[in-house]
Design a protein around this nucleic acid. Sequence first.
DNA 1: CGCCAGGGCCTCA
DNA 2: TGAGGCCATGGC
Length: 232
Amino acid sequence: MDGRFLKVYELLRRAHGPRRWWPVTPPGETKPLYTGGPRSDLQRFEVAAGAILTQNTAWTNAARAIENLNRLGAISPGAIGRMDVQSLALAIRSAGYFNQKAKRLKTIAAHFRANRKMTREGLLALDGVGPETADSIMLYGFKAPFFVVDAYTRRLFGRLDLVDPSASYEEIRERFERNLPRRVFVYKEYHALIVEHGKLVCRKAPLCEKCLLKKLCLMYLERKETKQGRIG
DNA sequence: CGCCAGGGCCTCA
DNA sequence: TGAGGCCATGGC
């Protein structure tokens, strides 16, 4: 096991604290909150719907769509099944790609109605559910130990030189899973920490001076040497 | 204004 | 199998 993966986790925890991702709507309310995860079938479905809605989209835009659905009493497999695609698309407009996502919500709602147990394979077979969406649903909705890999993960761990950013999704996921304790809590927090760090620090234009990982970071060390004129 | 956000699918080579 | 186009709103 490569201990650097756990080391980075601990440093990110120190930098950003517990994330408590994924937010879900408490009973009787309309706004998703950081409650530490879903506690009912309805909230598990909400995680799945949110995973679709946030595809390539800022969470605030997806959250607004979820609030709209909540106000319509529509975050359930049955209610989404009964709604026509047009009004569904209208309700989730803020999430972007609303025509695609309305269909995808219909598809996943039907899957929830038809299946008692969720599996990664079953989700991946659905139109509009790729590996990241499937793993997000399995991990955050159903406490299954799949590590979620996204664009932030590739960028950060590519810069750290712990992952080949051009590798396949499955390769990267397995690399994380081989090098971490197989704990749902760790997977959940770690992915959320990577996202937070990607947004605040390891941006496309990175803020290396703020970064607690810089001593471990190939990119930072290379830049430093370049500045000192020892390269090039 | 331009850029980009916690992807996935399709097409074409 | 991989690069590029497409889907779309909202925040900065």
